[in-house]
């Protein structure tokens, strides 16, 4: 068992969730309630990682974050190390790749809050931020949480992007999925089987949790 890889994957997943939580609340809410020019374009862009092969996205990120790019140079000047083939680079890639998994369920969650209940919150004298805290989030949280659970699970299993942006540096970028691949390459089938089984259990628990949450949300709003 490569516990280092598990621990790294969990760290990556937690960072991704922490960074995507505020993004999913504000972007999901905006896409659910506002009408503005370019909304469809933003929705399409958010969905793009779902249809794009991870290796393609990984390739573009490698180029965009690499030492040759302005972003990569800027990062290196600031922090003294490259962004690609580092844990930080993985976090950036993971956040981008998980946008649809985080934002879509959050958006559905906010859409499920009836508009007259939001109107009522404003008419009760709640500022937009108070209404978000006292009315919208208490009703939309199952959607937001579903997005976070999906993001967490998805990050644990991601392979293509991690390999391209991070490579396979033990303790830095070698995540569970990479570790399993490396084990198979080294004919360590038992090790690969143990790690795969662990990942399978985690994934199934995740799906059970999301189903339970959406059923709960449905009951609540009926």
């Amino acid at each position: 068992m490569d516990w280092d890889a598990f621990w790294l994957s969990i760290q990556l997943a937690l960072w991704t969730v922490a960074l995507l939580l505020p993004v999913s609340v504000f972007l999901g809410r905006m896409l659910a309630y506002r009408r503005f020019a370019g909304k469809s374009a933003i929705e399409a862009l958010v969905m793009l990682p779902l249809v794009l092969p991870p290796t393609v996205l990984g390739f573009y990120l490698l180029v965009a974050l690499g030492a040759e790019s302005p972003l990569g140079r800027g990062w290196e000047a600031l922090f003294g190390g490259p962004l690609v083939f580092s844990f930080e680079g993985l976090v950036v890639a993971s956040v981008l790749f998980n946008l649809p998994f985080a934002i879509q369920p959050a958006q559905r969650g906010f859409e499920a809050v009836p508009s007259d209940i939001r109107d009522a919150a404003a008419c009760c004298g709640m500022s937009p931020l108070t209404a978000l805290r006292k009315v919208e989030l208490p009703l939309a949280w199952p959607g937001v949480l579903t997005g976070m659970v999906l993001t967490f699970a998805h990050t644990l299993g991601e392979f293509g992007i991690v390999l391209l942006v991070g490579g396979s540096i033990p303790g830095e970028t070698r995540t569970v999925a990479i570790s399993i691949y490396d084990k198979v390459q080294a004919f360590d089938m038992d090790g690969a089987a143990r790690m795969s089984a662990t990942l399978l259990v985690i994934s199934m628990a995740t799906i059970a949790l999301t189903f339970w949450l959406s059923a709960r949300a449905g009951r609540r709003l009926s």
């Binding site: 007259d116 209940i117 009522a120 404003a122 004298g125 709640m126 937009p128 209404a131």
Partner: peptide
């Protein structure tokens, strides 16, 4: 939210 208005909605819109 700054207008001091009381509204009873058709659907009541209770939280």
């Amino acid at each position: 939210h700054r207008r001091k208005v009381g509204v009873v909605f058709q659907s009541y819109a209770l939280f």
